[in-house]
Design a protein around this nucleic acid. Structure first.
Length: 142
DNA sequence: GCCAACGTTGGC
DNA sequence: GCCAACGTTGGC
């Protein structure tokens, strides 16, 4: 299983909206960046991801799971753009802020720190465990 | 609200 | 194929 991070501005698509979709999940659509798309094409069912609120909040708020493999993005007529579906698993007990991530010496290699503009990004297993710990949340990798 | 960084587009 | 212009993202 691999780990990822999905970014969204809370006033465009928020964690609460994601949670409201329940187990059926929702398309992670609207991505128009090749790098981000390519990561989604690599995702497998059951992969886990962090849900990050960019801009206003700048914090990791929840854990999601990939529930549909990459498929054409329904919001685009352009066949270049694919996306996966994700569903909310649970919130972090404590949201983990960007400043907290940046100030942790173990997380200096995180893509979130080094490439702030990439909206879908890989997370290492080690980073996953550290961020979960910062969020007082069990990694709960089955 | 500003602006640096980055990605994409399109003229040549 | 280069690169200037442009649009967007997202931290500050």
């Amino acid at each position: 299983m691999n780990f990822w991070l999905f970014k969204s501005e809370a006033d465009v698509w928020s964690w609460d909206q994601q949670v409201a979709k329940g187990d059926q999940g929702e398309e992670w659509n609207g991505v128009r960046n090749y790098q981000a798309r390519n990561f989604m094409r690599q995702m497998q069912i059951g992969d886990r991801g962090f849900f990050y609120h960019s801009r206003a909040d700048k914090e990791i708020v929840g854990i999601v799971e990939v529930c549909a493999l990459s498929h054409p993005d329904s919001t685009s007529d352009d066949p270049r753009w694919d996306c996966v579906d994700i569903k909310a698993i649970r919130p972090l007990t404590q949201p983990v802020s960007l400043s907290k991530v940046k100030s942790d010496p173990r997380l200096t290699e995180m893509v979130l720190v080094n490439n702030s503009r990439l909206s879908v990004q890989p997370v290492t297993a080690e980073e996953w465990n550290i961020v979960c710990a910062l969020g007082s949340t069990e990694p709960q990798v089955d």
